[in-house]
Design a protein around this nucleic acid. Structure first.
Lengths: 173, 173
DNA sequence: ACTGAAAACCAAGATTT
DNA sequence: AAATCTTGGTTTTCAGT
């Protein structure tokens, strides 16, 4: 399966847990894990088929899926291959920050080219994945916009040459 | 929305395009982009509802979705929040390699804790994202198994402190 | 588990390019 | 001619009781 990694463009999905969302925090039982595995293979698999596979009624599967979605344990979404939709250049950018890391992270998160921001321990304070249309776009993004942010001390760009593995199915073993 | 990033655990989904998969390579038209946007919000949204939103019949939407899936332009999958399913430690690992980068990439890709492998240009040859149950697990993985791979020269680990943004919806603007 | 309602599926036939 | 969309009828799934 070709690469499938998020780029912003479109509806923004923030990591902040929406207010009012119930927090599960209970370890998943075997059955829920099996259901998730089924949906990791095919997010539109019918509930009845899932039920057959995990030994549950259709309705029971439906309720469990709804609960998993409500609690934010999983989401079911389309993921696309950036190379097939006109974005030819991806990169990871390691950023070091002076001062407030969080505020820099916020500004980076707000950029449409940025699909991934994580605060890290190590020689970078932030790792930022970006998806660009081409090298010019990437250059403009890094040199004009990211390095221009106040608080950004250094950046190091790792241009993607080849994506080798990209999985969405975890947490279930 | 909480973080949602792939960890292996479970069915393996390789990036290699399955043989016989038709290669689209035609730029997406506006309608397909709109359909993808709909499915990025909710991967199980009914075809009829999507049709209403984009101005197509239910059957036409279904056919287009099938085509997008067949061509590997997108997939519809469940993605889970590792923190909610018992994995408390994520990290990015920068790897430098002696010799064949691809073979090291293959071996890393085969590890269940590894959910992301990319060949990069820059001071690392590979970037590898891992999802571990705890710090002990991460330590064991890095020091006993990754550094032990022949061809691995150096590794640098960036432990995730906080995931700030994670998007799956791209390519559509 | 049962049931009405909704959605998905299928096969032609129509339309567009 | 090929690809894409629509229509109508049928089967399956869904959601609430």
């Amino acid at each position: 399966m070709p690469q499938v990694r998020g780029k912003d463009h479109g509806v923004t999905r923030k990591l902040v847990r929406p207010a009012g969302r119930p927090n599960a925090s209970q370890p998943l039982d075997e059955t829920s894990k099996q259901i998730i595995e089924q949906l990791q293979e095919d997010g539109r698999r019918p509930y009845a088929a899932i039920g057959k596979a995990v030994g549950l009624s259709e309705a029971a599967v439906r309720q469990r899926v709804q609960r998993l979605l409500d609690h934010g344990v999983m989401q079911i979404v389309a993921v696309t291959d950036p190379l097939q939709v006109g974005f030819t250049r991806q990169a990871m950018i390691g950023v070091t920050v002076d001062g407030e890391i969080e505020s820099v992270a916020d500004e980076l998160s707000a950029m449409t080219e940025v699909d991934y921001v994580v605060v890290t321990a190590g020689s970078f304070d932030l790792l930022v994945e970006v998806v660009c249309e081409d090298d010019d776009h990437l250059l403009e993004l890094v040199s004009r916009r990211i390095r221009a942010l106040s608080g950004v001390r250094t950046t190091e760009t790792f241009v993607y040459l080849k994506l080798r593995k990209q999985l969405y199915n975890w947490g279930t073993r």
